[in-house]
Amino acid sequence: MNKTYLISIPLIFILFISGIFLLNLNYEKKESLIVSDIPLFELQTLQKRKIDQSIFEEGEFKLINVWATWCINCKLEHGFLMNLKNQDIKIIGLNYKDDLEKAKKWLIQFGNPYYENVFDPLGDLGFELGVAGAPETYLVSKKNKILVKHIGIMNDKIWFDKFQSFLND
């Protein structure tokens, strides 16, 4: 058997699929740029006041942050959200499939980075938004379009890479 053939055929095959993998890894980052509307909803806040889509006022950027007390990674990004709040960025919390009392206690204990919190115990709004789990963060434009969806923990790097460019437009 000729060794050159033995080496080159599998090598080409492996290089080819590695290339595909590499393309795909980069590809998914682009895919998270989606433009869609805020769904209509009618739920309560953590303080049991009625709340609907009108909480999203036009004319300013805001974030939707999906969180829950059962979600450990939410605790990890909590400090970062507090920083954003101090930079006057409006964050609407979506308290996802959680317990009301636990959620309130969490905000008192660790601090409240949210402008307002939508309490979504059954995940209804979450379903409309396409939430897969917590944490997730969405950027909503001045005209109430969802521009960016980030699954996972928020940090400085992701903020600069994915979100910042939209805010400057």
Partner: peptide
């Protein structure tokens, strides 16, 4: 899930493949 991990693993796979094929290619078995 973490794309960065994926990239590192891909590089590892790639590096080990190239290295072992190189060693194989240079040999006279």
């Amino acid at each position: 899930l973490d794309p960065e991990r994926g990239l590192i693993l891909l590089l590892l796979t790639f590096g080990i493949t190239l290295y072992s094929f190189y060693v194989f290619f240079k040999s006279d078995v």
